[in-house]
Amino acid sequence: MTSMVDSVIFRETTIERRTADAVQDELRRRLARGWSRDEIAARLGLVPVGLDALMGRYWTIEEAFRVAEALEIDFARIHAEAAGAA
């Protein structure tokens, strides 16, 4: 009963992996800088412990895009940087 979400990471490109990780890192930095966990969770449509669960696993590129969109993280820039580094 492998997690359906985690299994996606096998079929992604390096650019997608780097992009998703970079978006997650940006969210982690915001939380570390004191952004409200409850508010971020609410903006993502989650309860706070759902945000903890989200941060505890790798994201798909689609999840990263949704998070970036909800939190106004510059997804296009991050993706371009990931592509440039590949």
Binding site: M1, M4, V5, D6, G45, L46, V47, G50, A53, L54
Partner: peptide, 15 residues
């Protein structure tokens, strides 16, 4: 599952 960011089992397997 959506609110807790948990993978749901879908409908084609055991659960």
């Amino acid at each position: 599952c959506t609110r807790r960011s948990l993978p749901s089992p879908g409908t084609t397997g055991l659960f």
